[in-house]
Design a protein around this nucleic acid. Structure first.
Lengths: 329, 329
DNA sequence: GAACCACCTGCAAACGTTTACAACCGAACG
DNA sequence: CGTTCGGTTGTAAACGTTTGCAGGTGGTTC
């Protein structure tokens, strides 16, 4: 027996319409009645039913967030900021973890669609065409991915890759391996693009290995393959993989950075606590999370607002895992 | 112009009631009509409006999850499993991050209440009485917290504390510091209880320092205080604090575990990659997440089902940060 | 052949809001 | 004094479902 608008109306001796207005368009109702209504609503602990409200208004006051892996601090960093920014504007957050399965990602968006006003999609794997299709039924904003016609919050990982290669080249490395992430992943492609761009300006050789699972175990696996390639430096797809690789090197008695330099992407808190601390590209996770929400909100309040692809800068953080290449093979 | 049940009904030349039944209680409708209806619904891409449905049924098909800190992998570990288990049963997940503020926690639960069928609450700080009050309007299941009358998924951190102290005592430590987490936190109290229980069986001395913020920075801060106490071993409230402390010890040139042993709680992936790797108590995060959802689901399907407090075992994982105490002071 | 039953289907009310429209009131205006 | 108008309120329709009830059909039982 939850309290409804009718209970409040009866007690306040006004119609339900007045109660509704007192709550959602205060200036339309006389100040003294409004205060009486609000007092009673408060006293009764009245909360309007979101279901009824959304049924008629078509708005839910929620946004959805679909991500590939909630166990990865990179994504939960985004999540944390999305939730906080959304909360700040009175929006609730629906969460979906696709476990890196594009099919699940699509299904998640579809099943969320009617319960939210818009969806933030961080889906490296799904096809462009599927995204465009999804965008027909849902207001969509993308994270770390560029698709024409759809707003996006981007991180300049290509720039980060360029910085990494320049850094390694400056140290004297000639032969580098890139441990790539999921082949279809947009971020991975973006990093490869940055890689190719950097190659034109420096005279180093970069092998691309993989794809590997962007997880700790993927890094362990990649470590042995990279070692066999006789490179002097390794760029990992992300910190988690780098940590996995680092552990494996440690296990095999390889000195980092004495024998082998290692860099990666993300700059998780944990990147600073490994031994040695990881040299890595800091991604603007916090800013991206907030920006994504803002893009979505502006799209919701004005569906005609222009589509924006906003790219946030990255920054290489040099720590302990990079150094000069060894003198001899 | 989204497609409604009426569109499907018209096309299938049946009443809306039949369409509704074809979708939600299939056995009530003739097989051939049902198949026709389903085919058309599918072709139209029809999805029932959750708002309309929930308005009449009173069910939403969602559950809420309120946690203190989405940046902490311990909690996101729970989150990941909650979302996955919920998804498996067709439930959506609403997320709220309270930033460790009890007032926000309460408000989050209240504002979620009407949009979900039940809430999983992981709130170390909020008062018992507030929880009981919340439980009157919402089906609640607690995580890592015991309140009478409310089901809970618990982790035996007291047992983990006992294992830690026994381990350190066996190594020969006599004087240990516990870097405590938030004073009001239920987990912290639980650990302290385990601590006191262990003290009765062993003849070691344990100082309780703090409370500290359960974050990296809290660990850094705690490190210096603990050093000043001339202890030979430290038990940190959680891994993140331990990593902070470890970094600080490294900075100050303190040898771990040569001069100082260090243990903690959580067994995050990152606990294994520090140098040296952390000795820590593994918490059954995955099992707890799933269990919590199951407790909630059983409560939802049968509100009269008994209240359960289920405690999952913990396990001390001995790695590189613990060793014998130094010979001399 | 009447009575019953199982099976299927449709009608219409209900869920709790919002909002277009109309109605009322007193004041201001001509 | 009639008209208009702004401010405030109420009436009722609408949103898209689910579900109790009743009606219809055809078969089975006595």
């Amino acid at each position: 027996m939850p309290v409804t608008i009718r209970d409040v109306a009866r007690e306040a001796k006004v119609s339900v319409a007045t109660v509704s207005r007192a709550l959602s368009s205060p200036h339309q109702v006389n100040q003294v009645t409004r205060e009486r209504v609000l007092a009673i609503a408060d006293q009764f602990g009245y909360r309007p039913s979101p279901a009824a409200r959304s049924l008629i208004t078509g708005k839910t006051g929620n946004i959805g967030l679909v991500m590939p892996d909630l166990a990865n601090p990179f994504f939960t960093g985004v999540l944390k900021n999305v939730q906080s920014r959304a909360h700040q504007s009175g929006y609730g957050v629906f969460i979906g973890d696709s476990d890196e399965d594009p099919a699940v990602e699509e299904e998640l968006v579809r099943s969320m669609a009617k319960q939210v006003d818009g969806v933030l999609l961080c889906s490296p794997g799904i096809k462009d065409s599927q995204i465009t299709a999804l965008a027909e039924n849902t207001t969509l904003v993308l994270l770390n991915r560029r698709v024409r016609g759809i707003s996006a919050a981007l991180m300049d990982s290509a720039g980060g890759m360029r910085q990494s290669i320049e850094h390694l080249a400056a140290l004297g490395h000639k032969r580098i391996a890139f441990l790539s992430g999921p082949r279809a992943s947009w971020s991975n492609k973006h990093r490869l693009r940055g890689l190719r761009a950097a190659l034109e300006k420096t005279n180093v050789e970069v092998l691309t290995l993989g794809p590997f699972a962007p997880r700790y175990s993927g890094g362990v696996q990649a470590a042995d393959l990279a070692l066999a390639e006789k490179v002097t430096a390794i760029i990992a797809y992300n910190d988690i993989m780098a940590l996995g690789a680092l552990a494996r090197f440690h296990e095999r008695g390889i000195d980092v950075p004495g024998e082998l330099s290692l860099t990666s992407f993300d700059d998780l808190v944990y990147a600073a606590v490994s031994a040695p601390a990881l040299t890595t590209v800091a991604m603007p996770v916090d800013a991206a999370g907030r920006l994504a929400v803002e893009l979505l909100l502006s799209r919701l309040s004005d569906p005609g607002s222009p589509v924006v692809h906003q790219e946030l800068p990255t920054q290489l953080i040099v720590r302990g895992t990079t150094g000069k290449p060894p003198r001899t093979r």
